[in-house]
Amino acid sequence: MSSIAKKIQEQQQAEQQRTVQTVIVHKAKISFGEVVLLCALAIAIALAGVKIVSNQTAIYETNKSIQQVEAKIDEQVKVNNDLKVEVSELSTYERIWKKAAENGLMLNENNVKVVEE
């Protein structure tokens, strides 16, 4: 009996050596809902990027127009200052007397009234 027992024992050991444990690895599948959420997230990020770029473009255009208006204002201030200087030069008493004399006007002290500012 020992030989039969030995054979059975050897068969059991042979079976144990032949049976290899297989590990089943499950791939993590992405569900349909997750795909939809990822697509929605990608679209939201793309739309946010487009919105930011368009806002920056609008800001740039507004700043450009502001600078153009400021340049026109500065130019007009210079023109106004030049005209003020010209008015002050043309309104001197000597010039007024000279123009009055050229046009034949005479100074009559009885008709002169002093006007205070």
Rank of each mutant, 00 (worst) to 15 (best):
residue 83 L to Q: 06
residue 52 I to M: 07
residue 62 T to N: 08
residue 50 V to A: 12
residue 87 V to L: 13
residue 44 A to I: 12
residue 8 I to E: 13
residue 105 L to S: 07
residue 96 I to F: 05
residue 37 L to E: 10
residue 87 V to W: 06
residue 9 Q to E: 15
residue 14 A to V: 09
residue 116 E to T: 14
residue 17 Q to N: 08
residue 87 V to Q: 00
residue 112 V to P: 00
residue 31 S to T: 12
residue 58 A to D: 11
residue 80 N to M: 05
residue 46 A to S: 11
residue 52 I to F: 10
residue 86 E to F: 04
residue 86 E to Q: 14
residue 77 V to N: 14
residue 64 K to N: 07
residue 104 G to P: 01
residue 30 I to R: 09
residue 112 V to C: 07
residue 33 G to N: 12
residue 114 V to S: 01
residue 98 K to I: 02
residue 92 T to I: 01
residue 6 K to C: 09
residue 32 F to C: 12
residue 117 E to S: 15
residue 114 V to D: 02
residue 85 V to M: 04
residue 63 N to S: 02
residue 48 A to W: 06
residue 52 I to A: 10
residue 1 M to T: 14
residue 29 K to G: 01
residue 106 M to K: 13
residue 99 K to F: 06
residue 56 Q to R: 11
residue 55 N to P: 00
residue 29 K to D: 07
residue 31 S to I: 06
residue 4 I to G: 00
residue 3 S to W: 09
residue 105 L to P: 00
residue 21 Q to K: 15
residue 75 E to A: 14
residue 111 N to R: 10
residue 62 T to I: 14
residue 54 S to C: 04
residue 45 I to N: 00
residue 64 K to M: 05
residue 16 Q to F: 05
residue 105 L to G: 04
residue 17 Q to W: 02
residue 65 S to L: 09
residue 80 N to T: 08
residue 93 Y to L: 11
residue 6 K to L: 13
residue 35 V to F: 06
residue 37 L to I: 13
residue 24 I to K: 14
residue 47 L to M: 12
residue 21 Q to P: 04
residue 96 I to C: 05
residue 113 K to P: 04
residue 21 Q to N: 13
residue 48 A to E: 02
residue 54 S to H: 01
residue 77 V to L: 10
residue 92 T to K: 06
residue 47 L to N: 05
residue 117 E to I: 15
residue 57 T to N: 15
residue 13 Q to N: 11
residue 34 E to R: 12
residue 59 I to G: 01
residue 86 E to H: 03
residue 34 E to A: 12
residue 36 V to N: 05
residue 78 K to T: 13
residue 100 A to M: 14
residue 103 N to F: 08
residue 59 I to L: 08
residue 27 K to C: 09
residue 26 H to I: 09
residue 9 Q to I: 15
residue 50 V to F: 12
residue 59 I to D: 01
residue 83 L to S: 03
residue 2 S to R: 15
residue 39 C to K: 03
residue 82 D to A: 11
residue 75 E to W: 03
residue 37 L to C: 05
residue 11 Q to M: 11
residue 47 L to K: 14
residue 103 N to Y: 08
residue 48 A to N: 00
residue 80 N to Y: 04
residue 99 K to S: 05
